[in-house]
Amino acid sequence: MTATTAPAPSRLQRVAALAGAETRLLLRNRTAVVNSLLLPLFLVAFVPVAGLGGDGPLGPRLVVTAFAVTLVFLTYHNLVTTYVARREELVLQRMRSGELTPGEVLLGTAVPTLLVTLAQVVLVLAGTAVIGEWSAPTDVVLPLVALLGGMLLMTLLAAASTSFTRTAESAQITTLPLVVLASITSGIVVPLTAFPEQVAQVVRLTPIEPVVELARLGLAGQTWDGRSVDWAAAPQPLLVLAAWIAVAAAVAPRVFRWAPRR
């Protein structure tokens, strides 16, 4: 009688299994779960008071602000902390020595944070409908491209940032430069129109600004300087976002450390 062997799990099954384990760890962290629910509610309440998100209807401003805040303060920061914590616990090294490929390890570890990012944006969308500020987007594709492209870019930048982050605690400091840069250059806190024209054009080349610009184009039909247009203004932010993704995809695998420094 010939013994039969079970087929090896597929790449998708391996990533799903790792993502499931990481999700269970996240759900056990009650503070992280509560913060994930409270941050969108805080945005819905705070944005109108602070006048964030530029000019235009309140609904799109809320959602655009949610894009920028969740991608930087949740996706990027959380993933740097998670990757470094798993590295220092030797978890990444053990997983890499098994069937999982490096890409599968990084993706599976990132999935829970990416799902929370999506959930927070959906909660803000629901919040705009509840308060009566929802308006149909000018174009559905551009916000989706902005969100998915932004999540990919923040994941790659987080992986690259682990190269100079020694501990999970030090991530509070090492992530600060990108957080500050995004706060200044995204157009959420300081409108780009407040800068001289030449400076504003340079600011448009920073990592998070094209995400905000694409989201604003799709949701409100407005450019960074308030003009009402549609796809005609999309090529530049699309190219800038694609360029950042390409650079981050080339750098992250080269600098990512799988084992702690000894």
Rank of each mutant, 00 (worst) to 15 (best):
M151V: 10
A119E: 00
I131R: 12
L92V: 14
L142K: 03
L148G: 10
Q172A: 15
T138G: 14
V105I: 12
V130A: 15
V124W: 03
L123T: 07
L118H: 02
V105M: 02
M154Y: 11
L115G: 06
V140H: 06
T175S: 12
L176T: 12
V121C: 05
G132E: 06
S97A: 15
L90K: 10
L90I: 10
S161W: 09
V105H: 02
T138F: 05
E133G: 00
L118P: 01
V122W: 05
A168N: 07
L176V: 05
P177C: 12
A110V: 06
I173N: 12
T109N: 04
V145E: 02
S161G: 08
T165N: 08
V121N: 04
V130E: 09
V116P: 09
V179L: 15
L152A: 15
L153E: 02
R94D: 11
I131K: 10
G127N: 03
L123N: 00
R94H: 10
V145P: 01
L118K: 00
E133L: 01
T155Y: 01
A171G: 14
T174Y: 13
T162K: 04
R94C: 09
L107T: 14
T113I: 12
E133H: 03
A110K: 09
V116Y: 06
T165Q: 11
V130I: 08
L123P: 01
V122H: 01
Q120Y: 00
M95N: 13
W134K: 11
V130K: 07
A136S: 13
L152F: 03
T117S: 13
A160M: 13
L90C: 07
V121W: 07
G108R: 00
P177Y: 13
L114D: 08
T113N: 08
G108Q: 02
P143G: 03
G132S: 04
A159M: 08
L153T: 01
S97C: 11
S170Q: 15
V179F: 11
L90E: 15
T109K: 01
T165V: 09
L106S: 06
L156H: 06
L178N: 01
P177R: 12
S97Y: 08
G108M: 03
T175K: 03
A126L: 14
R166E: 15
A168H: 11
S170L: 15
L90V: 14
L176Y: 11
A171Y: 11
L100F: 06
A159D: 02
A146L: 08
P143E: 04
L115S: 05
R94E: 13
M151S: 04
V130R: 12
T175W: 03
V111D: 03
L176M: 15
A168P: 12
G132W: 01
L106G: 03
G108D: 03
I131H: 06
P112S: 09
T128D: 03
L123A: 15
L115C: 09
Q172F: 14
T113Q: 10
A171Q: 06
S163C: 10
T128P: 00
L178S: 07
S135R: 10
T113A: 09
P102H: 14
